[in-house]
Design a protein around this nucleic acid. Sequence first.
DNA 1: CTCTAAAGCTAATACCGTTAGCTTTAGAGC
DNA 2: GCTCTAAAGCTAACGGTATTAGCTTTAGAG
Lengths: 188, 188
Amino acid sequence: MPRAGLNEEAVVTAALAVVDRDGAAALTLASVAALVGVATPSLYKHVGGLAELRSLVANRVLREMADVATAAVLGRSGDDAVTVLMRQLRHYAVEHPARYAAMPADPQHDPALANASGALIGVFAATLRHYALEGSAAIHAIRCLRVIVHGFSSIESSAGFGMAESPDDTFSHLIEMYLSYLHNAQEQ
Amino acid sequence: MPRAGLNEEAVVTAALAVVDRDGAAALTLASVAALVGVATPSLYKHVGGLAELRSLVANRVLREMADVATAAVLGRSGDDAVTVLMRQLRHYAVEHPARYAAMPADPQHDPALANASGALIGVFAATLRHYALEGSAAIHAIRCLRVIVHGFSSIESSAGFGMAESPDDTFSHLIEMYLSYLHNAQEQ
DNA sequence: CTCTAAAGCTAATACCGTTAGCTTTAGAGC
DNA sequence: GCTCTAAAGCTAACGGTATTAGCTTTAGAG
C-alpha cells in the first residue's frame, strides 16, 4: 500500500473541501480521513485532534479573508476603499457560505486565531485611518464596520433573506449608511 | 423508583438550563437526561431526538425574543420605539449569550421555527410602519435593522469586542446610524 | 545496503444518539 | 377500593465518533 504523503497543510485543505461539500457541521475526522484515503487515527500524525483541526480551518479562512480585504483596499482610499472592502468581504462569505459558518463565534478567544484575526482587523483599521478619527472614535468605527459586514454576511450566507428584494440593494443601503456615519464622525 | 413526570416543555426547559450552564455546543441528550434524573432513551418519549430538541430550544428562544421585542415597542413609536427595541434585543442577547448562540444560522429554513421567526420580524415591520416606507424600501429597512442587531449581538455575546471602549457607546453609534438612515429613506 | 524516524495501520476504549422491547407506574373507569 | 390500560421509564444493543496505545512498514539519510 503506497503512502499518502500527507502533512498538516494537506489535511487542512481536505477539511476545507469537506466543509465546502457537506457543510461546517459535517467536518469530522472520519470524513476527512475518508477523503484523503487514510484511516482516521492516522490523521493524529499531522493534527492534534478535531478541535485543533477546526481551529486550523478557521485560521485558514481568516487568512483568506484578510487576503481578500488587503487586495480590496490596495491602491484605494477613503469611501472607495471602504466600499470595495465591504463588497469583497461580503462576496467571499457568499461564495463560501460553509467556510464562513465554520468560523467559531469567538475567534479572538482562540490563541491560534489571534494573528489572522488581528490581520483582518488591521486592514479595517488601516482603511479607516484616512478619516483621521481620534481615540475611541476610531475604535467605534472599526466595530461598526465589523458589525455590518459580519451581520450581513452571516444572514446572507445562511439564506436568511427570504423576500424577493435583492440583497445587493440592501447591502448598498448599508454601505451608504456606514459612509454617512463616517463622514459625520469626521466632522466632530 | 418514583416517576419524573416529564413532558416536552419540561425537557426543553432543562435543555435551556444546560445551554445556559455549559454552552450551546454542550447541549446533548445525555446531559439533559442527567439533569432531569432520567435515562437518555427516556427522553424520546417526549422529544423526537437531538435535532428536534435543538429546534424546540431555538423556538423557545425566538419566542422569548419576540416577547422582548413586543414589550419594548408597546406604547412607543418612531425613533423612541426603534431605539428601545434595539436596546432590549441586545440586552437579551447579552444576558443569555449561550441561548443566542444556540440558534441555528438559518432559522427560517426550519419549518418549526417559521412562526416564531415570523413573529419577531413582524414586530420589526410594525415598528417601522411609522416611517411609512413604500414597497421595497420597507423591506430593506427591516433587513438593515436585522443586520445591525444580529451582527452586534452575535459579536458581543461571544465577547468579540476586545478593546477597552464600552460596547454601549458602539451600540449607541449604531442606533444613531440607523435612525439617520431611516430619516433619509423617509424623505424619498 | 542498512538503519531509523515517521507515516500509516489495527485494536481497543469511551461517549454519544438511536432503536427495540420489557417493566412499572399513574390514573381512568367501574 | 380494584382492575386495567396507556404511557413513562428502564435495560440491552448497535452504529458512529474521537482518542489512545502499540505495531508494522515505508521512505529517505548515510
